[in-house]
Design a protein around this nucleic acid. Structure first.
Length: 282
DNA sequence: AGCTACTCCTGGTAGC
DNA sequence: TGCTACCAGGAGTAGC
């Protein structure tokens, strides 16, 4: 599932193909993907503007749009891939994928292009807004950014009664983590997913802070994780971090640290993988 | 505050 | 082989 490393990879790889291009049109295949926005509203927000920046916040990809020859962003295209969303840049005249839900036609800079949003399960969203805050929910710090620092994290974590698994999945607590990287981070830090935040020692909380950053950075280096047919980079390549998984999807297999069998349970309706020996419950 | 349950979706797979 | 039933899961929302 696209989480921070996958979204970061998509944003980085799609950027050179779209930056500086002007939007000349769009094609809506599934209205709900654009939040129900009318063609008139989409035309007003998109057509005639140029993509002048590509950014990421949490699991959102942000396209900054500027009118005319301006470089000042006055509209945003905000994309969330959710479970099965993909972004691909195609030739403007090519036949769209059967699962395409939305396409943005990009005008001349060489051959015309089209930014296609492909999403078999239709959970993803492509929203337009004059201010991203109008469509983004409350989001915690970027785990790889400067605003994410150890002391603050330790303090916040130990102030919560919530279990670590749902707490780390909460985008308002830390932004960008999803099911895979929460399980991997907890294993690396040696913390049981059901441990309440307030029961985590200071050293363990620091270890978790470091684990989150290390896991995410390594996953970005490997362009994310691909273990089913869904996540691919915009060039069609799978990521390779799935080969580094210590617990996710490894239930029934031996822990690479201690040999104990990896378990899978359900926590808050989410499949949760852990090693009961490396991640003791206290 | 924070829990559970439900919703949105469909490709893949298990079971028969 | 062919059918049905069920599952995965990010995040928003409702109800408690």
């Amino acid at each position: 599932m696209p989480e921070l490393p996958e979204v970061e990879t998509v944003a980085r790889l799609v950027e050179p193909d779209v930056l500086g291009r002007r939007i000349t049109g769009f094609e809506v295949d599934w209205r709900r993907t654009v939040g129900g926005a009318s063609d008139a509203a989409l035309t007003a927000a998109l057509v005639g503007r140029r993509i002048v920046l590509v950014d990421r916040r949490a699991k959102y990809i942000l396209f900054g749009l500027a009118p005319g020859k301006s470089r000042t962003v006055d509209q945003w295209l905000v994309v969330h891939l959710r479970m099965t969303g993909r972004l691909v840049v195609n030739a403007a005249k090519s036949a769209p994928d059967a699962h395409r839900r939305f396409g943005v036609v990009l005008g001349p800079r060489g051959a015309n292009r089209r930014l296609d949003f492909i999403d078999p399960r239709k959970f993803g969203r492509c929203l337009v807004a004059a201010d991203p805050h109008d469509v983004l929910p409350a989001l915690g710090p970027e785990p790889l950014g400067d605003e994410f620092e150890a002391e603050g994290f330790v303090r916040e974590l130990r102030a919560r009664r919530r279990q670590l698994k749902p707490l780390l999945l909460d985008q308002a607590f830390v932004a960008g983590l999803g099911n895979i990287y929460v399980d991997e981070s907890l294993h690396r830090a040696g913390l049981h997913p059901l441990t309440p935040g307030e029961r985590v020692s200071r050293p363990k909380a620091r270890a978790l802070f470091a684990a989150i950053r290390a896991v995410l950075a390594e996953a970005i280096e490997r362009e994310g994780s691909s273990f089913d047919t869904f996540y691919r980079t915009p060039t069609g390549q799978p990521g390779s971090y799935q080969h580094q998984f210590q617990v996710y999807g490894r239930d029934g297999q031996p822990c690479r640290t201690c040999g104990h069998t990896i378990q899978k349970t359900v926590v808050g309706q989410r499949g949760t993988h852990f090693c009961a020996r490396c991640q003791r419950r206290r």
